[in-house]
Design a protein around this nucleic acid. Structure first.
Length: 206
DNA sequence: GCGACGATGGGCT
DNA sequence: GCCCATCGTCGCA
């Protein structure tokens, strides 16, 4: 194969890979829609020469200043600023002094909202970016998954992108509506009537 | 198989 | 100074 043709194939492969990347258009929509459609998408994180990937299996929507469960109900502060910004960015905060919560900013610039990733399945790790091995560890909670995938607050405010070592892809894993369970968000009982919203989405097992 | 509780630090009043 | 979008461990059944 000559060099020109080789480069052409590399170009095609890169275009194919790019087309599967979730970009800001995916996140620039209603928060509940994004939360639901994130189920089955693949989360990647590269750190210290290791590449982690896992399938998102549980999310929660946090939408607007009126939603008392959303940090944005406090208004525009140093912490909530990123949620007021462009969709497709990362919002990470520390809770209970030890757990990092991973969120993705949704809705157009100026409207504060985000989706919390509460659980992933099938966590795998690779040393060369190609051969993955399963990591048999618990990832069934927002604090557990960030710990296992080595995701911390240094990613706060960054754009979701391979350039920033944290990104999402659509690998054609189809989750039918009949396999999606909704329910109340966890740990927000203080949020009055907003605590009752069924803004939590998860993949039903079995 | 539960309910209680402590760890631990940043955000906001 | 109080409140958290949590989790592992403990005691008790």
């Amino acid at each position: 194969m000559d060099g020109c043709r080789h480069n052409f194939y590399i170009f095609i492969i890169k275009m194919f890979q790019r087309s599967k990347l979730l970009d800001s258009r995916f996140f620039n929509r209603d928060t509940k829609t994004v939360a639901k459609e994130l189920l089955g998408k693949t989360l990647y994180h590269k750190k210290d020469g290791l590449l982690y990937k896992a399938i998102i299996s549980e999310t929660e929507a946090y939408h607007g200043t009126e939603d008392l469960a959303c940090h944005c109900s406090k208004g525009l502060t140093n912490r909530t600023q990123v949620m007021y910004g462009a969709p497709g960015h990362i919002y990470i905060y520390l809770i209970y002094g030890m757990y990092h919560m991973l969120n993705f900013v949704t809705m157009p610039n100026g409207f504060p909202a985000a989706v919390l990733v509460r659980g992933v399945q099938n966590l795998q790790m690779s040393k060369d970016g190609q051969n993955f091995i399963a990591l048999p560890v618990a990832t069934d909670g927002p604090g557990k998954l960030t710990k296992q995938m080595q995701i911390d607050k240094t990613y706060n405010r960054l754009k979701i992108s391979p350039d920033n070592n944290l990104w999402l892809t659509d690998e054609n894993i189809i989750i039918p509506d009949t396999q999606i369970k909704t329910g109340k968000r966890i740990g927000v009982d203080y949020a009055k009537e907003w605590a009752d919203k069924a803004w939590r989405y998860s993949i039903m097992l079995k």
